[in-house]
Each structure stands twice: as structure tokens, then as C-alpha cells.
């Protein structure tokens, strides 16, 4: 399969990418290419201009400092999965990244491309919402920060404007008694998330003081499970308490559900609590350390 013809520009800095985006309305941004190239080959998009940002040094790397972990948008899934900083501060994100596609896909796909594409069957969006991530967006007019929760608007739709570039993602560093985890029912052939559950839990004095539970794969955008969270806070996160809380997930999902030939809407809704329970149990087990 061949992509439609396009003209190609390679940006060497964020500023240059911003200028190119302003000059070429409707241009598509290319990072690792693992979302864009399939779309071009299937002719679901035919942009006149593609702007390659894959070599911009300021958009690479993972750093920790001042209570924040900063992840460059060009960080690959393989780098996320193996980063000691990410594993120590945002285990759910490392686990989600490790379960994307296969090793060769993880060597090329990037966190920025993944979230800007906002595929509902993806893994990173729900992990980033559960971990309280903030996305840094820049345009020639300036930069702004958007909470992950507000970034995802719907099926492959985000609050990223056409002239904006997602340059980095910030996460709060791990705090005392906090743990996170990601549990996934993967499609057996494609490895896309049929159900992906991300959980972040804080435990103090044996009681859960905060919980963040977000589901993806079965809804058009990451969906928070407030009843699950509310039934955990104030409780001792025992196996029974977690299992009972997880059962509330179906009610939180509402009617915004997606099904396909492999897993119907009803099936996904019925079993979602299993993946929520697994993510919560793993997250709670990590709170001690």
C-alpha cells in the first residue's frame, strides 16, 4: 500500500515545527509514524504536507525533578517501559507502554503520537488520566498546559489545536504510600485494548486516602470510574473491599460503550470489573513500598 503523495518537511526544533504548522494549515505531524503511516496507507487521511518532528532533540528524554516527571513527546513506548524513572514514579504508565503492540512497534511508536492520535483502543490515555498527567502544548502564540482528563474529547478527538504541537507530558512524582498499575484485556491478534484499566491508589495508616480509576478500550475516550473511587476511599484496601468497589465499574461506564466482532458492548461492560479489580489490587500492593 502506498500513501497518497505529500510534501515533506523536517523540523529540527520546536520553533521550526511551529512555523511549519502555521505555514501549512491541515498538515499532519509525523513522529514515530505508527499511527500516521497506517492512516495514510489506508487513505483515511491525505494531507498535502507532512511535518516530520521525529528528530527534535528538545522533545526527547525523561527527567525527574521538583516533584515532577517530564517525558518528552518523542519518547518511545520501549523507552517508557524500561525507564527506571517511569517505573518508580508511574508504574501504570510503564505497564501500559509495555503492553502496546509488539517489541518492534514499541521501538518506534511515541507517547506524543499515541495520545495526539487518541485511539480509543489505546493504552496510554487511561494510564495518563489516572496518574494526573498534564500535557504541554505549544504554538507560535505560546504554550499552554492541559490536564490529560480534559485533553481527550472523544473518538480520535483531542483539545490539540491544528497549529499546536504536543511537546511534553508531566506527571506528579511518586509520593509516600502511592502505587499504580495497569491491567489489560488485549485483543489476541492486534494487541489493542479491549479493556484497559489504570489505577492509582494512595494508602496512609492502612486506609485508602485517594484513588483514581480510569478505563479505556471500551469507551470513546478514557472514562473515570467515580463510584469505584468513592467506595475505596476511607476503607482498608483488602481483597474483598477492592472486589466490591470494582463491581461498581459497569455503572460508571454509562451507555458510551464500543463493541466489535470480538467483544460486544455487553460483554465488555460485564467483565470490566475484573480488570479494574486486578489493576486496583496490584496498585494497592505497591502502596506499602
Amino acid at each position: 500500500m502506498f500513501a497518497p503523495e505529500f510534501s515533506y518537511h523536517r523540523a529540527s526544533s520546536i520553533a521550526e515545527a511551529g512555523r511549519l504548522l502555521a505555514e501549512h494549515p491541515g498538515a499532519k505531524v509525523l513522529a514515530g509514524g505508527h499511527s500516521l503511516i497506517p492512516i495514510l496507507k489506508l487513505r483515511l487521511a491525505a494531507p498535502a504536507v507532512v511535518i516530520d518532528i521525529g528528530r527534535i532533540p528538545e522533545m526527547k528524554g525523561i527527567a525527574a525533578g521538583n516533584g515532577t516527571v517530564t517525558i518528552g513527546a518523542l519518547t518511545t513506548h520501549a523507552e517508557l517501559a524500561s525507564s527506571e524513572i517511569v517505573r518508580a514514579n508511574a508504574r501504570a504508565l510503564a505497564e501500559a507502554a509495555a503492553q502496546i503492540g509488539d517489541p518492534a512497534v514499541r521501538n518506534r511508536g511515541t507517547i506524543g503520537g499515541n495520545v495526539a492520535h487518541a485511539d480509543p483502543a489505546s493504552d496510554l490515555p487511561q494510564a495518563l488520566v489516572a496518574l494526573g498527567a498534564t500535557f504541554r502544548l505549544t504554538s507560535p502564540e505560546g504554550a499552554r498546559s492541559v490536564a490529560a482528563e480534559d485533553f481527550f474529547e472523544g473518538l480520535m478527538t483531542t483539545s490539540l489545536r491544528e497549529d499546536e504541537l504536543l511537546t511534553s507530558i508531566e506527571l506528579p512524582a511518586a509520593g509516600p504510600g502511592r502505587g499504580s498499575a495497569y491491567a489489560k484485556l488485549a485483543h489476541p491478534a492486534s494487541r489493542y485494548a479491549v479493556i484497559g484499566a489504570a489505577a492509582s491508589v494512595t494508602v496512609a495508616g492502612g486506609k485508602c486516602t485517594a484513588a483514581s480509576v480510569v478505563l479505556g478500550g471500551l469507551t470513546s475516550r478514557p472514562t473515570r470510574a467515580p463510584s469505584v473511587e468513592a467506595s475505596l476511599v476511607g476503607q482498608t484496601p483488602s481483597e474483598a473491599v477492592i472486589a466490591a468497589a470494582a463491581k461498581n465499574a459497569a455503572g460508571d461506564l454509562g451507555d458510551d460503550l464500543m463493541g466489535d466482532i470480538y467483544a460486544s458492548e455487553e460483554y465488555r461492560k460485564a467483565v470490566a470489573h475484573v480488570w479494574v479489580r486486578r489493576a486496583l489490587a496490584a496498585a494497592a500492593a505497591r502502596c506499602a513500598g
Binding site: 523536517r10 509525523l30 509514524g33 503511516i37 516530520d52 521525529g54 512497534v105 521501538n107 518506534r108
Partner: peptide, 13 residues
């Protein structure tokens, strides 16, 4: 040195 799928990579990349 790292494995990639060359059907999902442009030559210019």
C-alpha cells in the same frame, strides 16, 4: 540496531 517494521517507516525517516 533495534528491530522495526519497515512497512511502517518512511525511507525519509
Amino acid at each position: 540496531g533495534a528491530a522495526v517494521k519497515s512497512c511502517t517507516c518512511l525511507a525519509v525517516q
